[in-house]
Design a protein around this nucleic acid. Structure first.
Lengths: 362, 362
DNA sequence: TTGAAAGCGCTAACAC
DNA sequence: GTGTTAGCGCTTTCAA
């Protein structure tokens, strides 16, 4: 039945046991590095296994042992630099601990989050690392509640799950946003816009909180019109920026809560002939290497995305060691690089000159 | 033993069978959508399953049936835009066909490629999609040879495996590179550099081939010194560019075989005070959204990375339908956007002026 | 320290 | 169309 000329993955413990003249359980013990195995036993088993080309079947092991050495990973879009870096960081760390990653994209759809959680549960993953679309979607919460395995949330907060084996990696978006907006105010901006993701997730709320804090400490009244929460896409960034610039009293500075939003915003600016630097100032959360090539001044808020992934993997590995208590969420700083902002220019912002002050126009 | 208050993943076919008063095989048939099941049977089984919260265990199914509905994916670095887009495209298509993705990074290490191929094989994936580090690494080739499942190679060519269930998605880098270099020659460049990845993989060789073709048809002698094959990193792009510019007769145009190499090259240029456009011209393979924001002229060679992933998934799904013959490799075009190049400037390339020689000027 | 035997949860063969 | 039975390849009691 099994063809001896074709090696790999068809050789079973049973065959190795026969060849070595021992019991299958002994073969199993050798490969599971069980402490109670004699040197002689190990040698015999390994020799037979090598000769036959035996490689343990991880599926069967998982079924029997209940552990698959697999972590499910759900992100919005693996092609975004944000999740690319996070998954990369986590994969390297998990791999070194012997785990593999099952990856799925939610495409911005909370129902896909839910479906993937259930699917990965059926695949018997040992744990889940999730960047959820929504912290309040009922079906997602139900799926999480049904789970028996540890979960690490990426920048999400779901208080109702705190009791269970759920922890998180949380970025301090508030500080970065506050510092950026504070400097905008300090250099003279009076009308500052915020474009970021939907309010259903923590990063957007935290950025908004930082934005509001900066306004409060700068005694600058908040204009609701300037706050645009909604989505992460380049398109959203472009649209909202165009809309903001089309208003009667447009903003002179803008904080974009993400690289894609930022690129959309910058594209919109260049479409209407505005160049960041000549009266209009842009700050963006997160960086990509290409941003350093932009010729106009651009303020950025940095965080270590790679480390986020590592931290998530670390939390997961801790929870996987049974007996460990639920680890506290890990906080990751966001750091604003000061001095990159430009002051507003009174009068028509597309032209320079006439540094009077006051309100200005587009 | 099993707690009825905790649903999910602990309910077995056996329990559903008992509750519905049928055999386990009938339950199995209903969930496997076996054609020979009566409406009444289905209804009874589904009702019992719903009540108990039954969800089939995919691990057990995989062990018994020999198919895990899982595809192993190995890329150099998931955080690069290239692989992010490819994996994304493939994931969506595979997901819709019921498959999940096991993802691993090789970190530029051919031995990790090998290790991942073996590991995924032990996990009993149904197929493998691979962007290998090397087409000739002996241990990688051995691991591939031992495989019993279909393989799709991403932009790699391994003739010795043609007989087996191995096919590929191949990009026509040659055409894109040839067209770019041809236009460089047409606008007057006489010293053109190429920086791209290692010669062990097809894209580098194809770009080189296109580069050489353009020189041949333009009757331009090839200067070995201007050809830099080696790695994909931004660092390599920067280093090689600096080295090229430090030569006695530096190039006036450069083709970078990848976004990261291109960014490295552009950084190097700006470090020495050169701006693409004033006598020096840069073309880069592959684009990212931020490139459109660069103010200086930049020529690009495009390909549809998302489609590459879809094509890989499509080939895989074809091979997974048993009975199908080995599908031919899919070719993906690369398209050069003409007219983005600038002419060289005689004399010191860092200064402008004096449009004497050459075909035209900027 | 090692062996024998049971069984993880499912599906596939074969009966009926 | 449905039930019975065996067993995928492994680990894990339990006994020796």
């Amino acid at each position: 039945m099994s063809d001896p000329r074709l090696p790999s993955s068809r050789v079973t413990v049973k065959q190795v046991a026969e060849a070595a003249g021992v019991a299958t359980s002994s073969v199993s013990r050798v490969f599971a590095r069980h402490p109670d195995t004699s040197k002689r036993m190990r040698a015999r088993v390994l020799e037979a296994a090598n000769k036959l080309g035996y490689e343990p079947d991880l599926l069967a092991r998982g079924l029997r042992s209940g552990r698959t050495a697999t972590i499910g990973f759900v992100v919005r879009d693996i092609s975004s630099p944000l999740f690319g870096d996070i998954v990369k960081g986590a994969e390297v760390k998990l791999r070194r601990a012997g785990y593999s990653i099952l990856l799925a994209n939610s495409d911005g759809d909370a129902d896909l989050d839910t479906a993937h959680i259930r699917l990965f549960n059926r695949r018997r993953v040992d744990g889940l690392i999730l960047s959820l679309e929504s912290e309040s979607n009922p079906s997602t919460l139900r799926a999480l509640g049904d789970l028996r395995v540890p979960v690490v949330l990426l920048d999400r907060e779901i208080p109702s799950l705190q009791q269970q084996r759920v922890t998180a990696v949380l970025c301090d978006h508030r500080t970065g946003a506050r510092d950026a907006v504070s400097e905008m105010i300090a250099v003279g901006h009076r009308r500052i816009a915020l474009i970021t993701g939907p309010e259903t997730i923590r990063p957007s709320r935290e950025r908004l909180a930082g934005y509001l804090e900066a306004h409060r400490s700068g005694s600058l009244p908040v204009v609701d019109e300037f706050i645009r929460l909604g989505s992460h896409s380049e398109r959203f960034g472009r649209r909202q920026t165009l809309d903001l610039l089309g208003g009667a009293e447009p903003p002179t500075a803008l904080l974009a809560g993400g690289v894609q939003l930022g690129i959309g915003a910058l594209n919109a600016l260049s479409e209407v002939g505005l160049v960041p630097g000549s009266g209009f100032s842009v700050a963006v959360s997160d960086v990509i290497p290409a941003l350093s090539l932009l010729s106009h001044p651009l303020a950025v808020i940095r965080r270590d995305r790679h480390r986020m992934g590592e931290a998530a993997a670390g939390l997961m590995l801790t929870m996987l060691k049974d007996g460990a208590s639920l680890p506290e969420p890990v906080s990751v700083p966001t750091v604003y690089s000061p001095g990159q902002l430009v002051a507003p220019v009174p009068g028509n912002v597309t032209t320079v000159d006439d540094p009077r002050e006051g309100v200005n126009s587009q």
